[in-house]
Write a protein that binds this DNA or RNA. Sequence first.
DNA 1: GTCTATATGCTGATAGAC
DNA 2: GTCTATCAGCATATAGAC
Lengths: 208, 208
Amino acid sequence: MQTNQPKSIREKSLKTILFAAQEEFVLQGYKGATVQSIADKAKLPKANVLYYFKNKENIYHAVLEHTLDMWDKGIGDIIPEDGPKLAIEKFIRAKVTMSFKHPQASKIYAMEIIQGAQHLKDFTRTYLRQWVRDKAKVFQHWIDNGEMKDVDPVNLIFLIWSSTQHYADFDNQILTIMNRADYEQDDINHVTRFLTDFILTGCELNND
Amino acid sequence: MQTNQPKSIREKSLKTILFAAQEEFVLQGYKGATVQSIADKAKLPKANVLYYFKNKENIYHAVLEHTLDMWDKGIGDIIPEDGPKLAIEKFIRAKVTMSFKHPQASKIYAMEIIQGAQHLKDFTRTYLRQWVRDKAKVFQHWIDNGEMKDVDPVNLIFLIWSSTQHYADFDNQILTIMNRADYEQDDINHVTRFLTDFILTGCELNND
DNA sequence: GTCTATATGCTGATAGAC
DNA sequence: GTCTATCAGCATATAGAC
């Protein structure tokens, strides 16, 4: 390995390629994205891209992994100690923030699941299934304790999930409907407040 | 035009091709779906498919149009006369039913929007924008009349939209999480009941 | 590590026999 | 209307000079 600088060309190139690839995969889909277009967007020759990643599928895998990693770090947790109100507030805030700050990651993930989750079957079957079961158990515990309304915990998780994700995956549609060019910081706050208030009310946890 | 039968080969072929194309476009994306694979799935020679539709893009357009058509017919309306409770109940029931009965249509639409709505810009900018504004006005009227809680109508529409759609677009993920092979009729009822109850509670319209 | 040139295979689309 | 044969173009991936 020949490195000229401490944080080398390699690190920088990898990052640039991953970022460019994410954009291309979102816009064109897996098959529609060409290595050439990724290289163009990354301002590197095509051969360099393939030097770093060997083939197109590896690039895609790297993008997916990067996405899951970021979510794992950004979404936080739902813990019994917080109690239902605080836990839901924290979770919605984190998910909305992720949706507005990293819509591309959410879109890649959505497309992958819609198309059959071919590259994420393992993740869904093991990690995600367990995650949902664990969190559902926490909600059920609060329900049994009379701390919140008796709603189906799994479907509640799906509702929070989908309603927050929507602002990332469908940002084009939402912006067009609202006749706007881009989201602004105020939108994050407004949506966070709307969803938190609405969902807490749905759980009969709102005491404004 | 040479027709041997009253409801001709043409009609039947068109329908078969559209159905096959929908499946392929969902699984492979626009670029990933090949005319050959669509022909194979429709059990017709590739040249016949191109005889009916001329080129791949036309097939895709036909699939999209068919999708929008079906939704327009299936989703129903939100009318002032129903009052908020009945209107929301009807709307959720219709959307959930559509999600469970025609997930492919929902997926095609979702992927198109996620990828930038290149083929649906006009639809979003004109028809959909107006639809959301009209329905938001109906909700606002109910709010002003004190018939429901003061929630942001546009974001409420987004929430109903996304939470119902989720069961179509992410059916793979949901089924995997629940360790099941397919949806059953009971699931439609259960989800409809959950969402109706939760969202009505969120609007402070629940008086069980 | 970087980049040019190229091999190999597949795809959309057409021509034209039946 | 149906189907076979075929072409031109493009994409992935590699070989190898620098």
